[in-house]
């Protein structure tokens, strides 16, 4: 502890001499006291240095600091918990979203296949009938064949093919030379083979109904044989045409 400054600062020689005197061991009671104090100081110094080096900073922290640290940790914990919740929500959304789009794609595929059969752009297979129309006298005209097609449509035929031509909504049948018709620009000659997919029994009975297609053909000198099959193939396809003028209206 500094005491009041002396009027004259000591010279260097004086100071060094005094230091030498002080370093000389003396045996007085106060000297022993001073020594004891220095032992305590050294002990405390070493202990404190060791404690500071060893501890993690928490054991010596004050109560208020600890409370603040605890608050910080709690806040951080809350924030991270919120982040976990958000990420879990996103994950769930993505999972269900994937499921939904997979279902949507599946539905779209099924729908495209159904529409393709209706539009005649894809081959079709299934139970149905094969009608063979013979025309030995050249009296079966396009109108008679159209009647047969209409009758099959009415009876629920889903895909129809005449010869090698797929019959769709726009199909046109024209008269040509006797014994032949032009279907969608392609010339077909008798006998004509009409393949239709649908319930075989319904289709056959629709054709054979009294006053129906088969009887009318016989009346004009032709003949029609209806064969019910468990599986017939409509292999002819019609290229899909992109509409030039119309576009889909926005669905409701």
């Amino acid at each position: 502890m500094s005491v009041s400054t002396p009027p004259n600062p000591p010279t260097t020689a004086e100071a060094r001499h005094r230091l030498g005197v002080a370093l000389r061991p003396r045996r007085t009671r106060t000297q022993a006291m001073v020594g004891a104090l220095f032992v305590v100081l050294g002990f405390a110094l070493a202990t404190q240095v060791r404690t500071t080096a060893a501890d993690d900073g928490l054991s010596t922290a004050r109560e208020e600091d600890l409370v603040r640290i605890l608050d910080d940790l709690g806040e951080r914990n809350d924030r991270l918990a919120g982040e976990i919740r958000d990420l879990e929500d996103v994950r769930d959304e993505l999972l269900t979203g994937t499921d939904q789009s997979a279902t949507a794609i599946e539905e779209a595929r099924a729908r495209a296949a159904a529409l393709g059969i209706l539009a005649g752009t894809v081959p079709a297979v299934g139970p149905g009938v094969v009608v063979t129309v013979r025309d030995p006298q050249g009296q079966v005209d396009a109108a008679a064949l159209l009647d047969a097609v209409q009758e099959l449509r009415d009876a629920g035929a889903e895909a129809i093919q005449i010869g090698s031509v797929r019959v769709v909504a726009q199909t046109a049948l024209l008269d040509d030379d006797p014994g032949s018709v032009v279907v969608d620009g392609r010339r077909l000659e008798a006998p004509y083979t009409i393949t239709a997919i649908g319930d075989p029994r319904t289709l056959a009975s629709a054709l054979r109904i009294p006053g129906g297609v088969v009887e009318s053909l016989r009346n004009v000198g032709g003949d029609a044989v209806v064969a019910e099959r468990d599986e017939v193939e409509v292999t002819a396809v019609r290229p899909a045409e992109d509409p030039r003028y119309s576009s889909p209206a926005a669905s409701r």
Partner: peptide
């Protein structure tokens, strides 16, 4: 004394 204390 200081050295002794530190050693202790």
């Amino acid at each position: 004394g200081l050295v002794l204390g530190i050693l202790l």
